[in-house]
Design a protein around this nucleic acid. Structure first.
Lengths: 151, 151
DNA sequence: TTAATTGCAAACGGTTTGCATGGGC
DNA sequence: GCCCATGCAAACCGTTTGCAATTAA
């Protein structure tokens, strides 16, 4: 689980492995944050000043489609990405979002119970609506300590 | 619960009740769908051809802030809104989203169990992270029957 | 070789803002 | 009458697209 063979992962999905793609994966792998395309781009520029923002967008999209990354929308107008099974992140987690300062906290409390319930729900929903469920997200929205005090 | 006194609700929050605002509320109240700002605007035009899209945006934002409506982002690039406690909708529900055709299904299966877990989680997260939790969303993403077949 | 990938610039689309006009209280 | 709210047009900003140049296999 440490280092998937990206090379083969890409080839199997019908894509080439390129330098910009390695770069983007490397950046996602080494962060425990939820990076936007711009975030990744700025980071990538430090290593390769000639990389284009477009390429970053396309790479993130690709990673999402082959199931390597997950795309999130926390309601601040820009998409955010995280690698699935990132060594730096807890395997299964959900998000706690401050509606004011937009801070995002990953939490894992009750994931065990939650996972069971989700599995059950997924099964029921699949049967009832004939949906093939690929993933789920749970977001809690609220005010963090600092923002609660300052309002 | 049938017809809240919008007039007073608005005044208490420090805002006036106006014709465009009544219109937008009325539209949200009479649908069981998840309308985007544009959707509401198009609908509003039928009654009041001089209403502006900007006003619709501002009104939806206002409703969200005073806690009358909830704003959702299903990942298709436009925000969607629904009235909280809409008589036409199940009180507490979650969403099943087709990643391909973007259809959204409301479901209520296991909400009871889920609500208990959420309450427990909310309490724990509040304590642990000192967050004041205002709301939560649960989204399941997948492929609907039609899209599953056509792919 | 040669088809996939890149980077740039321009387009896109949903949302927001500045500002003069209009409307509630 | 005093402001708040509105509508218009233009700005904004994240993201996508067209296309010629580049690059992996």
């Amino acid at each position: 689980m440490n280092t998937p063979d990206w090379q083969h992962l890409f080839r199997d999905a019908g894509f080439r492995m390129t330098y910009p793609r390695e770069l983007v994966i490397g950046i996602l792998k080494e962060t425990d944050k939820h990076l936007s395309a711009e975030d990744v781009y700025v980071q990538a520029l430090k290593t390769n000043p000639s990389i284009g923002l477009t390429t970053v967008y396309r790479t993130l999209d690709l990673l999402t489609h082959i199931g390597v990354a997950q795309k999130f929308d926390f309601g601040d107008g820009k998409a955010r990405f995280e690698l699935i099974n990132n060594a730096l992140k807890t395997d299964h987690h959900h998000h706690l979002i401050c509606m004011k300062c937009k801070t995002i906290i990953d939490y894992t409390d009750f994931v065990q119970e939650e996972l069971e319930l989700m599995k059950k729900t997924e099964k029921a929903l699949s049967r009832k609506y004939h949906f093939k469920i690929m993933q789920h997200t749970i977001h809690f929205y609220g005010l963090c300590e600092a923002c609660r005090k300052s309002s």
